[in-house]
Design a binder for these strands. Structure first.
Lengths: 265, 265
DNA sequence: CGGGATTGTCTACATATACGAACAGATCGG
DNA sequence: CCGATCTGTTCGTATATGTAGACAATCCCG
């Protein structure tokens, strides 16, 4: 069950982030189609707790910097591992494509860090965006590090739906793609979830936490480059985490066949 | 009426900020005494929206950096005026006491920015903390810039309660203190709300938004220093906002009688 | 490896809660 | 200055919602 008022609050926060200036109760209730009284209750709850204030003399509201203070505290207390962030930056520079750091959230992957490609045509996701675990390279990378049981429990919940030409449409298809990824040494998707989007992904385990790092871009560029990108990713991981990291820390992952590397494109 | 689930969410965020590491559903439900099913609903709502993720393989949750991204966007879009922040820093250095920038929120003042004194014994508030509008120097400063009608509407709602020896106990008492503040050229409180706490406050209007700036500390230090501090505050405002700012922008405020300034303490 | 304890998930029901409507203040234009 | 219109606020009630409880899956320890 979805907690409505909580969802409403999240909507409201996003509304303020987009809007960027104070809003009156009437504006808010009109924008969302909420009853004025309900809007009033929501706003006053936030006000009473110090999360909303009234910059102008009367009747316009805006979120307090308290949100920022709490968010900073939360991120600072359990930050993304430094090596992970360095890896992402490193990859962004070398590949020129968009880099996404992800982790599991329910049946999805959430992006925790995103570095967008500077390319005109690019994959342009945002921090907090979610994509399905079962149908994406990022998701396969993460699930590859789970136990059989965990994977089974997750996949049982999935309702399979065709997003693109590469979408796996059964539990077995997903397991196949994961197995292939482990043997290949990297995970790939090609129009699995977003049409015309290709990605190369690796799982990373840092301090018992499971992350995915993904290089993603339009199929036109990714198609022939995937293997080279995977190679670069292994190199970058070796630089940031040490040479033996992928072999020793990442469950079941094969190191890629260096000797078959094609000439850089 | 208070929206319970929203209040719960705020509690949860604060919980994570304090805790600083992932928590399981069971830990959360125990900590707050919430039913497991309700906790589940709350957590899954947040997960579905990309505000919570599961760093470890299974069943522990932590807020996503999305909170931070949104909070940064919100603050960046409507930042506290630069001159105001400079003023606060300036005052912190000169006075050595705690500086609070406040604005109205319902019947309270919320602190939007706080610079804590480096003094061992000091007033130690936090961003987002609230104090009553009617019983504090900050509140009086803000209300002094409202219309009669707005002030009346606010004061009608107040239930008067004695917080300290200086607490005004009637609408008239509050109006008296505000009137006195305007004539004096600065607002003061002495154990009005927090016992043994004294403060000097000025209202500031920047881009149609009403703020208060307050220098606050223990009565032992503030008592005899208030006038000097008020004087310094006027000087600092003149530096940051221009010499005529207080006279022209701030409704009804008298510039303080410079000639009666006592020797610096 | 197997039994017990713990944790997460689902569903039906009683109740706390969000909503509609009516009120009161404020704002605006004439 | 007055009336009309639009805001914010309060209240009673019908109903959407949170909760108890049972189940299922997982983990842990002997």
């Amino acid at each position: 069950m979805l907690v409505r008022q909580v969802a409403n609050l999240l909507d409201l926060i996003e509304y303020f982030a987009e809007r960027g200036k104070p809003a009156s109760l009437a504006e808010i209730s009109q924008h969302f189609g909420w009853p004025r009284s309900s809007t009033f209750n929501l706003l006053s709850t936030l006000g009473r707790r110090g999360f909303l204030f009234e910059p102008e003399a009367r009747g316009r509201f805006y979120p307090t910097p308290r949100w920022l203070a709490l968010a900073q505290t939360i991120v600072a207390a359990a930050p993304l591992p430094d090596a992970l962030l360095r890896l992402a930056r490193d990859l962004a520079e070398r590949s020129g494509e968009t880099i996404c750091v992800g982790a599991a959230a329910g049946t999805s992957v959430v992006f925790l860090d995103v570095i967008q490609s500077t390319n005109r045509v690019r994959y342009a996701p945002e921090v907090g965006q979610r994509i399905p675990l079962h149908a994406t390279a990022s998701g396969h990378a993460i699930m590859s590090q789970w136990s059989e049981a965990q994977r089974a429990a997750l996949l049982r919940k999935v309702v399979f739906e065709r997003y693109g030409s590469g979408t796996p449409m059964s539990i077995e298809a997903v397991e196949d793609q994961i197995r292939a990824g482990l043997q290949r040494g990297w995970f790939r998707s090609a129009s699995n979830y977003s049409v015309d989007l290709g990605g190369v992904s690796l799982p990373l385990i840092v301090a018992d936490r499971i992350f995915s790092v993904t290089v993603a871009g339009p199929m036109s560029r990714m198609d022939t480059a995937m293997f080279k990108i995977a190679q670069d990713m292994h190199d970058a991981v070796a630089r940031q985490f040490g040479a033996s990291y992928l072999r020793t820390e990442i469950k079941g992952l094969t190191t890629p066949p260096l000797e078959t590397l094609t000439a850089p494109l």
